[in-house]
């Protein structure tokens, strides 16, 4: 059975048309095993499923990295006579896939992503933490029962709907308000993306705040402090790492947000002038991919994959970082990991 599974996997990886054969064999073996040794089969099957999860992450990493290698090689610069692959991607600011010299600099998109993420975090972090505090410590039962699903639904509204409303309502409005040429500004993309990252911050921060033991809170209240003092001096410091993990995850969401950015931004990969001009929105890493996948091929396609790699690595690092922080918090509070 295992052999069949591995074989089908290999076949799939090689894109062989004969993949179906080992798949069928595997299913057959699993079926026979299920009938005869159900316990063992279940164990092996669930183990295979576990491995599959890790495998998917590995596959993603490998495949998108491999695709991006040509453009890294193309954008090689020499520093002190030593060729450094990919350096030019970050030292120049020119992205042009049509006119010579053809350059695929990532700097404008990184700038855009940083702008959007900063604004989004400025929106989502304070509001999200305040809302989490409200939900876990302040809200009376009935209010909580309304607000909590509300926040979940906020997470459920598809990003394209946010983008659509932003595109049809917010962008024209902002353009008129700030008298800009054309539509699309980092400011409003940031606000919309912040709204989308908000539920992530709220739910993770709320978990962290509620995991502070009730006895600590009562201990503080019994000292005669107000509940607000208890929150600021006991609950938030005790849950600090959890709350910061929540903010980090929110940042991760904001970095990876695609559709709202794609439809609301201008889609012109260049820097804004001056750099802190938030009233103009050019391009983020995510919108670059979504805007250009259709007509890109060759090196340009590889450059899109490179943007994906940058996104992936950043977000993965943030995810691992926040997990580490949460793990430390649980250890500190003496709870289960």
């Amino acid at each position: 059975m295992t052999v069949a599974l591995v074989a089908s996997l290999v076949g799939f990886l090689l894109a062989s048309p004969f993949t179906a054969l080992p798949v069928a064999l595997f299913l057959l073996a699993a079926g026979v095993g299920w009938v005869r040794y159900q316990g063992l089969t279940a164990r092996v099957l669930t183990f295979a499923m576990t491995i599959a999860t890790v495998l998917i992450l590995l596959l993603i990493t490998v495949y998108i990295t491999v695709e991006s290698i040509p453009v890294i090689r193309y954008e090689t610069t020499t520093v002190f006579g030593v060729p450094v692959p990919g350096l030019r991607l970050f030292t120049e600011t020119r992205w042009d896939a049509v006119a010579e010299p053809i350059r695929y600099s990532m700097v404008p998109m990184i700038h855009g992503t940083v702008m959007v993420t900063t604004i989004a975090t400025a929106v989502a972090a304070p509001l999200g933490v305040a809302a989490a505090l409200f939900l876990s410590e302040i809200a009376p039962g009935a209010v909580r029962e309304v607000v909590k699903p509300g926040v979940e639904i906020l997470a459920g509204i598809p990003s394209i709907v946010y983008g659509f409303i932003g595109f049809t309502i917010l962008s024209p409005w902002a353009s008129e308000q700030f008298r800009t040429t054309g539509q699309g500004s980092y400011l409003f993309v940031g606000i919309v993306v912040g709204l989308m990252a908000l539920p992530t911050v709220v739910s993770v921060a709320e978990d962290a705040l509620s995991s502070v033991p009730e006895s600590m809170k009562s201990g503080s209240l019994a000292m005669g402090t107000t509940d607000w003092q208890t929150m600021t001096s006991i609950t938030i410091p005790a849950a600090f790492s959890g709350v910061s993990a929540a903010v980090l995850l929110g940042v991760g969401r904001a970095i990876g947000e695609t559709m709202a950015a794609t439809v609301m931004l201008r889609g012109v990969p260049q820097l804004t002038e001056p750099l802190y001009n938030v009233f103009y929105g050019q391009e983020t890493l995510t919108s670059l991919i979504a805007n250009n996948y259709g007509n890109a091929h060759g090196l340009q396609m590889d450059a899109l994959f490179l943007a994906g790699v940058i996104l992936f690595i950043t977000v993965l690092a943030i995810s691992i970082g926040s997990q580490y922080i949460e793990w430390r918090m649980h250890r500190k509070l003496g709870g289960e990991v």
Partner: peptide, 10 residues
């Protein structure tokens, strides 16, 4: 937390 567009690329 992997961005959806990265899944798309994959």
């Amino acid at each position: 937390s992997t961005p959806s567009i990265v899944f798309g690329l994959f």
